[in-house]
Write a protein that binds this DNA or RNA. Structure first.
Lengths: 233, 233
DNA sequence: GCGATGTTACGGTGACGGCCGGAGCAACGG
DNA sequence: CCGTTGCTCCGGCCGTCACCGTAACATCGC
């Protein structure tokens, strides 16, 4: 069982509360420094450094040196997907009691990024709207963008990466939202849509959090293009 | 960060080598007793009992009492999906060296079940064959069954669960195979196909392993219906 | 009722690992 | 050049947890 040791190693790396906090913070896809990660995890920079070193050799994160800063980010989308799935299981078994949700948690539940796509109330509302309008079809396993959806992306100027080959259907991945318990849009399509929202100035990052804020412009665009009401409420 | 503690708890449960071995053994979707799982993990039944108790309260497995035996199985497909994704990350970072593959590992790589669908060389070969024949389309995020694929399933008598609503497209989920590094068929479609292979006597479980054996009848059927050569070699 | 088997509960032991403080090293700025 | 900042290495403390042996409890066959 050679693969078993590697499996346990990866799971152990994610299992420490301090490391889990750091990985959680990195789930927005951005790169953070060791000191920033130490602060979110509530430990000293020395301890954080050790953790980050272990995470790096374990292949969960990668480091990019820039001057006297060292920026850490998740190593791959596969890691983000793994963290998502663990959160999925954790939120399934966790609701032993209705937990207290602080204001910070509330902002996260409203709208956040999930590595490279939108999640929270906003992400789910967007997916719901597109399903209702026949622009995408979503099953539990997978999803597909219809011609109406392609037309919408074309009209909005959503840039797909890599550029779509006209032959194959455009497929997308549903991702069960841990706060809403309903699927939102992930995969290449979710990433493209999220990227477009940032580039067009519809949303922006909230400093020091995975939460995102909807701009005034974004509010209007979401209402006009997706029929989503004030602040996705 | 209420969800953080639950996250770390779940990851820690999967992170112990002994527990990882048990979860790995349960990945074939069957239910095993504490003694069997102890033997797989190489620990005493007492120790295994403690581990299984923790896994149960953690929501990773469920227990079914039957006489003096207690059968343990994975709690949900979400747990299986999580274990898959961890294995995915582990196999990404693990290939530090070409590891020795024993005969037991070899059987696993040839053909095995992955919770509820087929994996290994056989699983990948089936997916490849269906893609080549235009019966399914697979992207990295998702997949879809074409009309040709639906016709094939109909001809073979593959029973979909739940029965397909004629309106929506039949979507499927690709699952990156850790041994082949290529996608095989998962999700409801993969599960239906796997179930049909068992029911029709094309494959059978190898006792005491996640590996499966292809019967003589199955060999002929796989060749005739999917063009897969001897033993999927 | 009496062994045999499967499973759980308890106490003790040992080790792995997280944490911090102190010190050493690069990088930027004045 | 020197002080500041960001990060890493080292040594030591301490809590947690995996493991086993012993023992108790349920279930089945005789």
């Amino acid at each position: 069982m050679t693969s078993n040791a590697a499996f346990a190693e990866v799971a152990t790396l994610a299992g420490d509360p301090a490391r889990a906090g750091m990985l959680h913070a990195l789930m927005d896809g951005r790169a953070l420094t060791a000191t920033e990660l130490a602060r979110v995890a509530g430990i000293t920079p020395q301890t954080a450094s050790g953790h980050l070193s272990r995470l790096t050799v374990g292949g969960l994160i990668t480091v990019e040196k820039q001057g006297r800063h060292r920026y850490h980010r998740l190593a791959s989308p596969a890691v983000a997907c793994m963290l998502e799935s663990i959160m999925q299981v954790a939120s399934d078994s966790a609701p032993r009691r209705k937990v207290f949700v602080g204001p910070r948690d509330l902002a996260l539940r409203h709208a956040r990024t999930c590595y490279d796509h939108l999640a929270g109330h906003l992400g789910v509302a967007l997916a719901d709207a597109m399903v209702a309008r026949g622009q995408i079809e979503l099953a539990s396993d997978a999803g597909v963008v219809t011609d109406a959806g392609l037309a919408l992306f074309d009209r909005l100027g959503v840039a797909l990466e890599p550029p779509r080959k006209n032959k194959a259907r455009l497929l997308c991945r549903p991702c069960l939202d841990w706060s809403e318990r309903r699927p939102h849009l992930a995969g290449v399509v979710g990433a493209a849509l999220c990227r477009h929202c940032f580039n067009a100035g519809w949303i922006r990052h909230v400093e020091g959090s995975r939460a995102i804020a909807i701009t005034v412009k974004g509010e209007r665009q979401f209402r006009e293009n997706f029929g989503i009401g004030a602040a996705g409420a």
